[in-house]
Design a binder for these strands. Structure first.
Lengths: 339, 339
DNA sequence: GGCATCGTGTGCACCGTTCTACGTAGAACG
DNA sequence: CGTTCTACGTAGAACGGTGCACACGATGCC
């Protein structure tokens, strides 16, 4: 039957349809669905068959009103960074075999968008949230964490009481990179960082700056951090300017391959030899770093594993755990020819 | 108040809370929310203030049960392709100023995942769906389209009756690329395509093959299509093999920059000069094509515009339109040095 | 002045689940 | 043999909104 708008309105098979078809009560069907206590094998079998033949699917919206939706929300800063898909895959590695599904929101690196997305996910009664590199402060996160279980990736907040954090040890990674450059004999090592809001010490870029400065200090070298805005198309322009300055640094530690890949590319096209004229080490070990003409040394932070751990952590929290977990993963340096 | 699980249960402000606070009926508040007919300015004002001071947000789950959720679902094949974010941005360009929000699902290039995601979005009572390059057949799409308004991007199905399609003219784009290579004097032009399922004539790769073959035929040249599987890490290996064959083609039209960027990179690292020894034109004009050492000529299909058009089309369909719209955008060749 | 009309607001059934309480039959127990 | 358990199934009230039918006072009209 057609309602005139082209939509099918008949056939709408609900839990009631199933109950009638199986000759049992609605409550019984519900019990089977949630595999709750108090159903005989015979009844379960019976109901399952009805569900199968009718092609019934429970309404997530209705479930959400009283119980769980079996859905976790994933909030992504942006999806331009090739590092993100890896994390998402890691999350799905864990979620797929579970009874939970995921739905994603894109924050577009913009805090009001992010908060509105989180609220939307709460309004849909999702069971838990995984936030990837959110722009907001720990205080804001804490407020949301009172309403819904939250696990955060790429946001350093090791003392947070109400949500879990899963991070690569960004300070350590930056130290690895910087120390490698120092060991190669470089002294004028500049860090190319991302400009971030003043109140965001939790940001990964900030942590990497700390690691860089620590390593430089230990070696008795002066550290210089140049922060570039990450606003899409202007990046190549800024990188070119950076390389045209005089004197130009001989070695660069780059907060992300997002910049480093372009940097190596632009440097080479300007006739600079890498690493002889310019040594570069990046961060994230993104797929492009492995391209032959790029061949960028980079810090690998095992994005897939980060995602998987976040999913597991969230699952355990949704299961009732209350004490916060704060996980820090050891990054590693992937050596290629760039530095 | 804390329920012992750390969640806040008090304070839960519902439409009833608002109604009491404003001293009106629940129905009145509902009317204001939906800005339905039959509310005086005074009442609206009054209710709005209560909503504001209480920080009330309507539950999307509850709304979905009877009315709309003001949410559209976006289904993405994968997010590894840098072309996808552009499309998403285009969608958001239109959705942000509207009253609608979006939530995304990631199909992971896997049909069962995609269908389950679509069903999940239907189960959440989303108001409409935008599918980006779905793997499923038109028949399957049609079945879902009876349950929910659908607009599809990157899926050629110009005769579909129940859903809208928004595409770049992939045949035309492939012809542009091929003709450019022919005009440059090449005769042995090979197309590097993506291996796709046999029943998917709707796939963009298939359309591009048709365009390629047509252009070659018109020029009286024999066409050769080499299809490579797109399964992540094996791509560079296959490309290298492709380049090591003897005789090697002098010119290549590549179905996607996903392959073309790697191809140019590997070719150059093998000592081949581009375009002298190997001319390459790609497809998508993705951000990496513009890198100096890549400098890849590519077909631009205006992803952002595709996304925006899809959102507009969906909006108009959700608004009651019934006749299908099938939009085809004219692609353009972005000339760089590679071919 | 009686009656239809209009603009506003309310009452209530309904959407599709979950969940708490309770009924009931048979087994176990003393 | 009466009583307490245990296992299974059911009834019915939530959950938080929407939307229809209707009430009610003020107007307009003949």
């Amino acid at each position: 039957m057609d309602d005139g708008g082209g939509r099918v309105t008949r056939g709408k098979v609900t839990i009631r349809t199933v109950a009638e078809h199986a000759g049992v009560s609605v409550a019984a069907v519900s019990k089977v669905l949630r595999n709750a206590y108090g159903v005989s094998d015979a009844l379960r079998q019976n109901v399952m068959e009805s569900i199968e033949t009718l092609g019934y699917r429970p309404s997530a919206a209705a479930r959400g009103m009283r119980g769980r939706t079996f859905t976790v929300g994933i909030l992504l800063v942006e999806i331009g960074n090739p590092f993100i898909p890896e994390v998402v895959e890691g999350i799905n590695d864990i979620l797929s075999p579970s009874e939970f599904k995921s739905l994603m929101g894109m924050g577009r690196s913009h805090m009001p968008v992010e908060t509105s997305l989180i609220e939307q996910m709460i309004d849909f009664h999702m069971d838990g949230l995984i936030l990837v590199a959110p722009r907001m402060s720990g205080a804001v996160l804490d407020r949301y964490a009172r309403q819904i279980p939250i696990a955060v990736i790429g946001h350093h907040e090791a003392t947070a009481a109400h949500f879990d954090t899963i991070n690569s040890d960004d300070q350590r990674g930056a130290m690895l990179a910087t120390e490698a450059l120092i060991a190669a004999g470089h002294r004028d090592i500049v860090m190319l960082s991302q400009a971030y809001a003043p109140d965001s010490s939790h940001a990964v870029a900030g942590q990497r700056e700390i690691g860089y400065r620590t390593a430089m200090q230990r070696a008795g070298l002066p550290g210089t951090v140049v922060a570039l805005p990450y606003d899409g198309d202007s990046v190549p322009h800024h990188l070119r300017q950076f390389l045209e300055q005089n004197p130009r640094p001989r070695a660069v530690f780059c907060w992300s391959d997002l910049f480093a890949v372009d940097l190596v590319n632009i440097a080479r096209s300007m006739g600079l030899r890498v690493p002889e004229d310019l040594a570069v080490i990046g961060y994230d070990n993104n797929p492009l770093a492995a391209l032959p003409l790029v061949d960028l040394s980079s810090i690998d932070q095992a994005g897939r594993r980060l995602g998987a751990l976040a999913a597991e952590t969230l699952l355990s929290r949704m299961d009732g755990r209350n004490a916060p977990h704060h996980i820090l993963l050891e990054p590693s340096l992937v050596r290629r020819t760039s530095g």
